[in-house]
Write a protein that binds this DNA or RNA. Sequence first.
DNA 1: CTGCATCCTGTTGGATACTG
DNA 2: CAGTATCCAACAGGATGCAG
Lengths: 121, 121
Amino acid sequence: MEPLTADLFAPQCLSAETPFRIGDKWGGMVVVCLKDGPRRFSELRVPLRTVSPKVLAATLKALERDGMITRKTYDENPPRVEYALTDLGRTLFEPMDRCREWAEKYLPSLLKARQAYDRAD
Amino acid sequence: MEPLTADLFAPQCLSAETPFRIGDKWGGMVVVCLKDGPRRFSELRVPLRTVSPKVLAATLKALERDGMITRKTYDENPPRVEYALTDLGRTLFEPMDRCREWAEKYLPSLLKARQAYDRAD
DNA sequence: CTGCATCCTGTTGGATACTG
DNA sequence: CAGTATCCAACAGGATGCAG
């Protein structure tokens, strides 16, 4: 399994402009990060560079609460915790992919309309 | 064209629990309300009973800015304004339908997981 | 390493009254 | 009728320090 890279959600990636949101601000991105297999807390912090530990923990807890991911702690020192998608969590990919496809097709039109609107003021 | 009913988004409708959101809080619901044709400001307030005029106006302005709807004013007295979906706005239905289908299939599982999690605490 | 406690900020959304 | 103006509450999200 490839390590997650820091530029997976680069700022110039327009995903922040899409009208679709999954769960809270970071929920959809966490789900994508878990696509290939379980990840540790600190592993997730690499692609999600700007998320604070508090907010990441809250995001993971909300996803666990809704049955989308599992949280497995290993009784080691230093401690290790791994998060993994459940079968239910994997069902999110289908609608998420449709949203991503929409964005690839139509986000440029949205941004063009927005710029035209802003210029008109 | 049928009038919009007040129970279109009834509170017991679980749409509030879906993890998918389109635009701001009311954006997706406005798009659904415009599916069958143009609607007036006050017509939209019927199904969206609890939205304040300020927030509805902001929602409509954001949708217009992004090219999803058009705003047409008629120079009458009393004034009349009609909102209608654009072709771009209609492209939202495809991903939105996939999200709705997800919710119909899997929202019960999500809610069951949530209840189990909350009981475990 | 994981993630909780605390505090703080900005944004979103709502209540109410009022205007062209 | 179709909003705007004003004020306010709630919450999401962020910074920082610390604990197991």
